[in-house]
Nucleic acid binder design. Structure first.
Length: 552
RNA sequence: GCGCCUGUAGCUCAGCCGGAUAGAGCAUCAGUCUUCGAAACUGGUGGUCGAGGGUUCGAAUCCCUCCAGGCGCACCA
């Protein structure tokens, strides 16, 4: 990578300066290489002389000039220039840049991949809502964020597993069962009450009626306990199927659908509780069992087993994370949660530590809430169900590509306004189509190339020397750095911005540089550049889980 | 009251492990189609980076205080 090359160059120059007595023998500060905002500042820049000046107590410009003179020549770098107040700006050689087009074509779909992950086993767990109702837009955000992050991590050489955790045990499921039974009986004309704190949504009525259509009234004849079990199981199964169906439509695939129930079935829950008890992390208070996280620096303790003997959600989550790290040996676990679960983060970290696992191995991404709007107006209630608007409705209204793009164009930490009208507009004001149009345009050029039976494998990319061509090549070469950054920060939203920039750069190139002309040699060279652009743009879109259309 | 997140152009948002005149898209104004897709391109207008202190050669970025909004603070999940 260029950054490493530049760091080495600077290090060598600095050491040489020290040997020659032009710099005091101080310990060198860490060298950072950045991409300047202004093109006139070159392709890369370093503030190394500024950092060095503080330690060496010397004028930064003097240091910069010294380093520049002592720096060895390389194939990649055209020039290294000292610039006030003490930067060094690097510019790449044109004939190195245009040769990279062939490199991109050779790499193809794997261009931009790296081996940061070194095959490490990583689990990303996301969405994971209770099977008590349909997915909403907020869940969609987590789903899209997670799936794009997984793609990025895979591109960086991690061995990634995608998991959905079904909370299908516990209190909330009981309430779901009771709510469903009440709706079932009501639909049969029998008087029944949905419990307080129950699931009131209209979808529960629809679900009850669906079950009546398929199974008749047989559950009303059973004892209540038996009805809750049998009817509830059917209901839970249906809700799960619906969740899976919505996620598939959103192009979010999972490798593992993990059931909370299984933690009890295979004894892991008991095992973990024993470990915690042995480690003196549990205490009995007020008839309940508590996880004593105050010993680990937390604000308060948390109940794991209620006084009625029922484990809390927290309890199974402890067993679940034990399972992830100890039983399944994930080296890194990433949980993606909505902002409403933020308070759960410190105690989960504390638990992991109590189990003897480095809390750094557990990374929790919190994404903020989504506000749905329509032409600037808040949307609160779905017309169809009387509930919050569902993910399915949003997908149907604005389309999956637009959904994915808009969700990925926001950093997770920022609250988000999702405007249905804007996302839907298939016009110039919609960045989704702007980006996809660039791909369709490229494909259209390639169709022409095929029609004219132009072969270009022997194209000479050193003919690409004009400013729009070189700018496009530079933009393509940003891509591997983008993958690295998104991997380090766990922030896939950079993809969306890059996609727009690349489309923009391509459109500008297209306007200035006609590809297919009478100049056969230049035509072939430009076709190569177009193909490289197609490769990178398509890959960016695919990492985002979007289509790269050939026609629009 | 306490904790986490956010506050940057008219709108939606990047930039935030300090760096060079603060960016993008949309909106708005003015231009550009006899040739590969004008769903495009070029240029202009538009900013006390919530406010105030501090650290620094240098702060949108780090620290403190305050203001505003979101989300939490259960023997719910």
């Amino acid at each position: 990578m260029l950054r490493e090359i530049l760091i080495n160059l600077l290090t060598e120059a600095a050491k040489k300066a020290q040997r020659e007595g032009k710099l005091p023998s101080v310990e060198l500060p860490e060298i950072t290489i950045e991409r300047p905002q202004k093109a006139e500042h070159g392709d890369y820049a370093s503030n190394f002389p500024l950092k060095l000046s503080r330690i060496a107590r010397a004028n930064p410009m003097v240091i910069a000039n010294e380093l520049v003179t002592l720096m060895p020549k390389t194939d990649e770098i055209e020039s290294a220039v000292a610039a006030p107040p003490g930067f060094i700006n690097f510019t790449l050689k044109n004939n190195w840049l245009n040769r990279q087009v062939d490199h991109i074509l050779t790499e193809g779909e794997s261009f931009g991949n790296n081996n940061m992950g070194q095959g490490k086993k990583v689990q990303v767990e996301f969405v994971s809502i209770n099977p008590t109702g349909p997915l909403h837009v907020g869940h969609g955000r987590g789903a899209i964020l997670g799936s794009a992050l997984v793609n990025v991590l895979a591109a960086s050489g991690y061995n990634v597993e995608k998991e959905y955790y079904f909370n299908d045990a516990g209190n909330q499921m009981d309430i779901f069962r009771r709510s469903l039974l009440a709706r079932y009986l009501q639909s049969l004309g029998i008087k029944a009450e949905v419990p307080e704190n129950g699931y009131m949504g209209n979808y529960m009525i629809v679900l009850a009626q669906e079950i009546i259509t398929e199974h008749g009234d047989k559950f009303q004849k059973l004892t209540e306990a038996e009805a809750l079990k049998q009817l509830g199981d059917i209901g839970i199964g249906k809700v799960k199927d619906k969740i899976k169906k919505d996620l598939t439509q959103l192009r979010v695939e999972f490798d593992v659908w993990f059931r909370e129930q299984s933690l009890y079935e295979n004894g892991q829950y008991d095992k973990v509780m024993a470990i915690l008890r042995k480690g003196d992390h549990l205490a009995e208070k007020e008839g309940a069992t508590w996880f004593v996280s105050t010993n680990l620096g937390e604000d308060k303790d948390n109940v794991v087993v209620r006084s009625n003997g029922m484990p809390t959600y927290f309890a199974t989550d402890i067993a679940y994370h034990y399972n992830k790290f100890i039983e399944r040996h994930f080296e890194k676990v990433i949980d993606i949660w909505g902002a409403d679960h933020q308070g759960h983060v410190p105690r989960m970290k504390a638990v992991v530590a109590a189990l003897g696992i480095d809390p750094e191995q557990l990374q929790i991404i919190i994404h903020q809430m989504v506000t749905l709007k329509r032409g600037g107006e808040l949307v609160r209630v779905s017309k169809r169900t009387g509930d919050l608007i569902t993910l399915e409705e949003v997908m149907e209204e604005v389309g999956v590509d637009a959904c994915r793009f808009f969700f990925l164009a926001r950093s997770a930490s920022s609250q988000m306004d999702f405007d249905l009208e804007l996302a839907k507009k298939q016009s110039q004001e919609n960045p989704v189509y702007y980006v996809q149009y660039a791909h369709a345009r490229i494909t259209s050029i390639m169709r022409l190339v095929e029609e004219k039976k132009i072969t270009f494998a022997d194209g000479d990319t050193s003919l690409l020397t004009t400013e729009p061509e070189l700018t496009l090549i530079r933009k393509l070469l940003h891509f591997p750095e983008l993958i690295e950054m998104a991997t380090l920060t766990l922030e896939p939203h950079h993809l969306a911005y890059y996609a727009q920039e690349l489309a923009n750069t391509f459109h500008a190139f297209y306007k200035d540089c006609r590809v297919v002309t009478d100049d056969e040699a230049l035509t072939k060279a430009r076709i190569k550049l177009v193909m490289a652009s197609k490769t990178v743009l398509a890959k960016t879109l695919h990492l985002m889980g979007m289509n790269a259309p050939d026609r629009m």
